[in-house]
Design a protein around this nucleic acid. Structure first.
Length: 525
RNA sequence: GCGCUCGUGGCUCAACGGAUAGAGCACCUGGCUUCGGACCAGGGGAUUGCAGGUUCGAUUCCUGCCGAGCGCACCA
């Protein structure tokens, strides 16, 4: 709907002022209550361009657009806003559309089938996944769902650091020697099952078991299905890393110093150059990571999205730099998730795998449930530092707004069960095209209409936390409608038919939002 | 010291440079003989860390300061 209005405005600007204004740059907002359904500030922007009073510009555009029948009316306000009020018919058509398109409502084609790669969670396979690492899980998974809905072809991948230093540390821990760092039941278990020998080899074997028996089940439990678990060890074996490094060398971005091989990341804004091959001949994490990113591009992905914990922010510059050096600028988007601070008895728990003082994602799911956990993580924008009070975890799960949303869905299911026979008949024959809408109905329908714009917006700005916010808003509008508007009225079949259509549309959208978030939409609860 | 991310009611968090800064929890007052009260209606509670600047307009952008987290390895 926003796009439609943008286009109309663009045409109006053209015919009123002879100015060619990029439709994409016309901002369409939701104004405060009572001021219409949509608003725009173009007149304020345009005022400067054409050298006229914004109010004057707004009024000119208003009269230019006043004949369009998707609007009931258009108003101008104070500094130069233009406010649009949709016609009831526009809204009514939208309800029909949702019922026709079902779960395809809100689908978009802006992705145009482009392949997009998402790398998330990717915690080291050295033990259970803790809540800090887990935050990126629902985020990446949900973002992939959104992208898919917008016509992209997303691919979910977990990068497994199954060799190198991490494997050594795990190896030492299994061997229980002086350099051991991890402990816990799973280490005891590995000790019995892994053949002891070289720390590296022991660690690699252990990592394989951790991946299969701890990490994968944990992700499945969290509702996340990766398309692939990508092995760093395999990548190194393939010779790909050397290939990429020599490509960088040819372009002059590689030099040797102190027996090591370096990448000139300072040429890309990094504060120092970075080692890619250590003096002992082993590749650094960064060295192989460059190859990993190139490998992804060579697999046909046009866009790469990496979701990293905030402790990796220092790597953004150098990774982007390496890609740019190889002629792949602007193909990588990095989303950083800030840390989750865990509070227990009012005090912060330092999350340490070594000290064993971390909370695993499995524990969290067992405690509060998958739906509530996902919703909680998704609610907050990635760049806020979250506090999570474990003592309130259980209580929080009962107070979690996810139930508010699910309840709305279940309530509708209940209404539809009750209306069963009528729904099975040709109840649509009772629909009238000129029915007067209750105030709450109008508000609710408008909320439904926002969905398509929202999904498309998220596919571009990755602001996944808008989804839970939207879901709560929609549930809120529904509950409020429910309280004032009786759906089933045997003495008024026209009204009943109209409201059943509406309620079905609400259920469709609620179910779809929940599905995108990877959260169940219960018929009963 | 340098860099990244933040600082919003008592608590947890929203707010594409826009209009009266929004929700939830907690607190207070009302509301079920009809579709599910896990709900609804309403109320109190915020000089958006501080100080400047940019402009028609700043929680948002810029500068400085204060405070928090995270980085600053031939570890990942």
């Amino acid at each position: 709907m926003k796009k439609e209005i943008q286009k109309l405005l663009q045409q109006a600007i053209q015919s009123a002022f002879g100015v060619d204004f990029d439709a994409e740059k016309i901002k369409i907002d939701y104004p405060p209550e009572g001021m219409g359904d949509f608003s725009t500030n173009v007149a304020l922007v345009l005022g400067k361009v054409v050298g006229k009073n914004p109010m004057e510009v707004a009024e000119k555009l208003q009269s230019e657009l006043s004949e369009k029948d998707i609007f009931e009316k258009i108003e101008t306000a104070k500094p130069g806003f233009i406010n649009f009020f949709l016609a009831e018919e526009t809204l009514r058509n939208n309800v029909v559309k949702i019922n026709e398109e079902k779960n395809k409502f809100g689908n978009s084609e802006i992705g145009a089938g482009r392949k997009i790669h998402l790398d998330f969670v990717s915690a080291n396979p050295t033990g259970p996944i803790h809540v800090g690492n887990a935050r990126g899980g629902p985020l990446g998974d949900t973002l992939a769902n959104v992208l898919e809905k917008c016509g992209y072809m997303p691919f979910r991948e977990y990068y497994v650091n199954d060799t190198g230093n991490q494997a050594d540390i795990l190896g030492h821990s299994i061997l229980g020697d002086a350099e051991a760092q991890y402990s816990g039941e799973y280490i005891e278990d590995l000790r019995k099952r892994v053949e002891k020998g070289d720390p590296r080899k022991t660690g690699e074997e252990g990592a394989a078991i951790v991946l299969e028996e701890i990490i994968k089940p944990s992700m499945e439990k969290f509702g996340i299905h990766f398309d692939n678990y990508f092995s760093e060890r395999e990548l190194q074996k393939s010779g790909k890393v050397d290939e990429i490094l020599s490509a960088l060398k040819e372009k002059g971005y590689i030099f040797e110093k102190d027996g090591a091989v370096w990448f000139k990341s300072t040429e890309f804004g990094d504060d120092k150059d970075r080692v890619v091959v250590k003096s002992n001949g082993e590749k650094t994490y960064f060295g192989t990571d460059i190859a990993y990113h190139v490998d992804k591009l060579e697999r046909g992905f046009e866009k790469l999205v990496d979701i990293w914990g905030a402790d990796h922010h220092g790597e953004v510059r150098r990774t982007e730099g390496a890609l740019k050096a190889l002629g792949h600028g602007n193909k990588l988007d990095v989303i950083l998730t800030q840390f989750v601070r865990i509070l227990k008895n009012g005090e912060e728990m330092k999350m340490s795998k070594r000290a064993g003082t971390y909370v695993s994602v499995d524990d969290l799911i067992d405690e509060v449930g998958c739906d509530a956990t996902r919703f909680f993580f998704l609610m907050h924008s990635a760049d806020t530092h979250m506090n999570f009070d474990l003592n309130l975890a259980k209580e929080r799960s009962e107070k979690n707004p996810v139930y508010y949303v699910q309840y709305a869905h279940a309530r509708i299911a209940s209404i539809l069960r009750k209306a069963g026979d009528f729904l099975k008949s040709d109840f649509r024959n009772f629909l009238k095209s000129d029915f007067r809408m209750h105030k709450k109905e109008r508000v609710l329908i408008f909320e439904l209409l926002k969905f398509s714009d929202l999904v498309e917006e998220i596919s571009q700005n990755y602001a996944v936390h808008y989804l839970p916010q939207y879901a709560m808003g929609l549930a809120d509008k529904f509950h409020s409608f429910y309280d004032e508007c009786r759906v089933i009225d045997e003495n008024n079949l026209e009204l009943t038919a109209q409201r059943l259509e509406l309620v079905k549309a609400v259920q469709i959208v609620l179910a779809e939002v929940l599905k995108i978030m990877g959260i169940s939409a219960p018929e009963r609860m």
